[in-house]
Write a protein that binds this DNA or RNA. Structure first.
Lengths: 203, 203
DNA sequence: ACAATAGTGTCTTTAAGACATTATGCG
DNA sequence: CGCATAATGTCTTAAAGACACTATTGT
């Protein structure tokens, strides 16, 4: 038996940090407990499709709100599932924060409660892996930050994934030197006090 | 069905470059063709144990000659196996070059002939992944270079994995600054002409 | 004016690339 | 000696860290 477990993240402009989809299990084992959304891999099914199925089925989001999917690692501890030995192929996914209501709870990294199975360790591995993908993997970076983003959001994202907050000026310099990324001319007022920001836009 | 396919590498002092174990399949599908050593994952079996089983069974090496094992990636193309949809969990392994006779053919990266299944692409992914592990993953690096190695061998290894040969002086400088690695006092004559080398030893 | 936020500039440190120079062996 | 191989030193460039300074808004 092979399950595909998904670390689905979103980063809404209305939220200070990215968050992860956690669902309450409605079936045994661990019925009623919290876990990552996951499905059993169907025969001949692709990992990408299984991840989509986990998000649409367990989180309740239509597939067009999924902006990126990728592999993480395989967890093979034989006792990880009380039903018997099961492999977990873990995947990451980025979903559109402007998505309709869903059936998941969303937690910031680091505030996720205890999870069923070995999903706690899986989540930790995922966070470290995503920290490595940020800025290096254009697909992931663009998916989670969106088409236009402020340096402040880039700062918050990097801090949430890596655990330490980069220097604002240094991050700006890095973004400036990044191919395929440009700084908009027009400044945008954020609403509160402070200087307006110049959004970063992908080309 | 889940298969575990192993990219088993060794780097003998008698060889100029590292090489990969390739076996000739004795069963369908692709009987008689070349492929990576692989086994079907048993129920409740750990990936590490399956990789060991592939090496002992298909390559014919005793398990004590295996110096390191790790995960690579999952290949899920439904048509990759003519028997029907099969997942391939690919792994790397490093085997002791001072091993007894085995039943595999050993090819240098880049000189491997056409392989059955999707093992060609898997091997390419593996090579890139191992290039990333070199110097960063102490376990892999120590396993493939051995307890004592010359800068010349480090150069050859880096070139074989990454495709480009680093500068000798720069590599020496990097090794000098690497924690857990020391340069032996006594120089070793290599046999041929040229200045003796000071081996690098792990601490 | 002042606090809050954003952007820019600069000095320093570190890592890496390129390449010359010196050292030690074999024939 | 001449050639092959190894080690070291140096100049330069690129990237990153730390931090000061300026700019623009809301109250």
């Amino acid at each position: 038996m092979v399950s595909v477990d998904v670390v689905a993240v979103r980063f809404a402009v209305t939220e200070a940090t990215p968050s992860v989809a956690i669902i309450r299990r409605d079936r045994e084992p661990f019925a009623g407990e919290l876990a990552l959304p996951g499905v059993l891999l169907g025969r001949g099914e692709r990992l990408y499709d299984a991840a989509l199925r986990a998000i649409t089925g367990k989180v309740g989001l239509p597939p067009e709100h999924i902006r990126g999917v990728g592999q993480l690692a395989t967890f093979d501890e034989p006792l990880r599932d009380p039903r018997g030995p099961t492999l977990s192929l873990s995947m990451w996914a980025v979903v559109d924060p402007a998505a309709p209501v869903d059936t998941a709870s969303w937690f910031a990294f680091g505030q996720v409660p205890h999870l069923a199975f070995d999903h706690g360790p899986i989540l930790e591995v995922a966070r470290a892996a995503l920290a490595g993908l940020l800025w290096r993997d254009r697909t992931f970076t663009r998916a989670i930050l969106g088409e236009e983003f402020s340096t402040a959001r880039a700062l918050a994202l990097a801090e949430a994934l890596s655990g330490s907050r980069p220097d604002r000026g240094n991050l700006n310099r890095m973004l400036r030197s990044m191919p395929g990324l440009q700084q908009a001319e027009a400044a945008v007022r954020s609403g509160g006090p402070g200087r307006p920001y110049q959004p970063w836009v992908w080309t």
